[in-house]
Design a protein around this nucleic acid. Structure first.
Lengths: 113, 113
DNA sequence: AATAGTACTTGGCTATACATAGTACTTTAT
DNA sequence: ATAAAGTACTATGTATAGCCAAGTACTATT
């Protein structure tokens, strides 16, 4: 039972939320997402991101189109479907709710209990 | 891929953090914890909590003592070990970090990107 | 033609939350 | 005294997300 493992567990589900949010702002491909996640200090590796994108696409939340690149192989540029947009709205609510619940617990001091 | 499942995923790891925090504020047994979690709208069932407590105890983060009850079988009252306290500190940092990262992504509007 | 870089894919592993069923003890009702 | 209801804890099996690691495929550079 180490901290690193718990960090991984904490990230579960949240990453999905972040990815959907990033895509909601405009067409992006995998490396764009990794860049932005890394910038926000949310480290993600390829082996996590690509399967996640495939899962979201198969679930009908995302769609992509191939776009040729000037410097390398073609890229999959993703966008949200209507279903993906409404799913993201649900996730946003869930996340806000969860943060609120957690704060309600962690902000309760010993004295007031 | 439904919302309910993602809610479950989002809760992973966070629950552990909340439990440790609740115990850090004073001796409690399982039902106390469920009450407080329920009050904070973080629904948890017995089948989740008890194995979690056992896991944390086996990891050396918790210890308990049996206390007889006036109305039912004896109860396990939990407290944090020193190791548990420092683990909780690590988790607190991790959680705050994660919230901050998530906000950095979700508060970035389409316009500024 | 060979090497390096970029983009995407796949299979296996681990750990958590949950559903479900079960054990054990105490109190209450008949 | 016995049965029923309630409380507290235990055990087993399932699903899924994130990660590691290896691999495929295409492009650009040398």
């Amino acid at each position: 039972m180490n901290l690193e493992n718990t960090q991984v567990q904490m990230r579960k589900g949240i990453l999905e939320y972040c990815i959907l949010h990033i895509i909601s702002r405009g067409e992006v491909y995998a490396s764009d997402m990794i860049d932005e996640l890394t910038e926000a200090k949310m480290i993600v590796v390829e082996g996590t991101l690509y399967p996640l994108l495939t899962r979201l696409k198969n679930a009908g939340l995302l769609e992509y189109k191939w776009v040729e690149s000037k410097s390398g192989p073609p890229r999959k540029y993703y966008t949200l479907t209507n279903e993906g947009t409404s799913f993201l709205n649900g996730l946003t609510e869930t996340w806000n709710y969860l943060v609120q619940s957690t704060e309600m617990i962690t902000n309760r001091s010993k004295a007031t209990f």
